[in-house]
Amino acid sequence: MRRTLLLLSLSASIATQAQELCGTIADRCEKHITAQYIPDGQFYRALLQGDEQAEFNMTLFGGTTYRVAACSGESDGILVFNVVDKDNNVLFSNKDQGNAPYWDLSVTNTIDVRIEAGLDPTKAGSGCAVMLIGFKK
């Protein structure tokens, strides 16, 4: 019984810490979705350890410019992300751009992509990964 209570207490404590950790990162990340972009209204986060990768699938609609912001840790440039098409072609990697914390994707035709995000091992071993998406009208 005591062990269960301890575990529940620890779980709750970890959850609160995760919220605070991710919340702070989200606040910083939001600044990259500037006023020119309309937020998509969703919040994406994952807790990463080592070489784990977070991934999510999304449809990019043709004729739209998207802004993808990817943040972790206490400063920009910690999260590496790749945009990959359904045939596994890498369409963009922020690693080629000095781990840029945000990037615009100007999409001609509607495509389904997968965004994979992981920590730069030279900068962090664990942390909360936050991704935010906005788009231009």
Partner: peptide
């Protein structure tokens, strides 16, 4: 890179 933009030209 200067515009921090990638133009995705795949067709569908």
């Amino acid at each position: 890179a200067a515009k921090k933009t990638t133009f995705i030209n795949s067709t569908s």
